[in-house]
Nucleic acid binder design. Structure first.
Lengths: 130, 130
DNA sequence: GTGTTTGCAAACAATTTGCAGAATT
DNA sequence: AATTCTGCAAATTGTTTGCAAACAC
């Protein structure tokens, strides 16, 4: 779709990607911003948003829109499912195998072309149950 | 969760629900607003939002957050799956049976309690393919 | 009459964007 | 030197909220 302009290196982008790789809790842009700022104090929120978009456009990270309000980001790019807690809003990975067959199945009766799907479970996380 | 205050009748709410029942394309709040305004010119956008939230809280309609940006609303409240077009953004119903088993399956390895899921397919709709 | 709902406008939260200067190739 | 990238601030978008008047029961 969008042709890629030559990509230049940037300390900021490196830091963002590196940080995301250390986290399994699917941070929001704001969380990324606040964390990175502890080691790189003048990074701006705009830069964080720009790089998160750039990275997810290039498939180096995944953008999650589970809750319909805040986007979250995941450095684990292999297709997998998520869970969102109705109480605290935390997002976790679900260890079910990703099913390509369901796309075929859906395609059979669909007047168009299905290329993938996102599946988000909801309920209460272990912390919110107790 | 939230205790229900006695519900009073409102022409606006009736109109919104009636309108939604005539549509299968999962309109956004803004679409609802613009449509209703053709027959009820001084309805306000705030009222539309308030009633859409109220109706979905009461389970009379469903709020869809497929694309992570705009919410859409559906008067068809029985659990079913959706499709969103990567090109034009239209949202359509998918005629796959809703699977309760998948929640059980996910629950088996999940440290918490899963109560449901939302599944959204993506790809290109018939109009965008040609 | 009491309490809910409305219209309006202002407030809000998340995200995007324009621009001049800094960094990368 | 040519471009991309950054910081900053202002702009945009979608949605929520406070308030006084209007409406429903």
């Amino acid at each position: 779709m969008a042709q890629q302009p030559t990509l230049k290196h940037s300390r900021q982008r490196d830091a963002i990607l590196a940080f995301l790789k250390t986290r399994k809790d699917h941070p929001t842009a704001d969380t990324v911003y606040k964390e990175i700022r502890t080691t790189m104090p003048n990074i701006s929120l705009g830069t964080v948003y720009r790089n998160l978009s750039l990275l997810s456009d290039r498939g180096e990270i995944i953008r999650l829109s589970c809750d319909g309000k805040v986007d979250r980001f995941d450095a684990d790019t292999h297709p997998h499912y998520h869970f969102i807690c109705k109480q605290c809003g935390c997002v976790k990975d679900i260890s079910l195998p990703y099913s390509e067959q369901i796309d075929q199945l859906a395609n059979e009766t669909f007047d168009g072309s299905i290329t993938g799907h996102t599946l988000c479970f909801e309920g209460y996380c272990s912390d919110c149950i107790s």
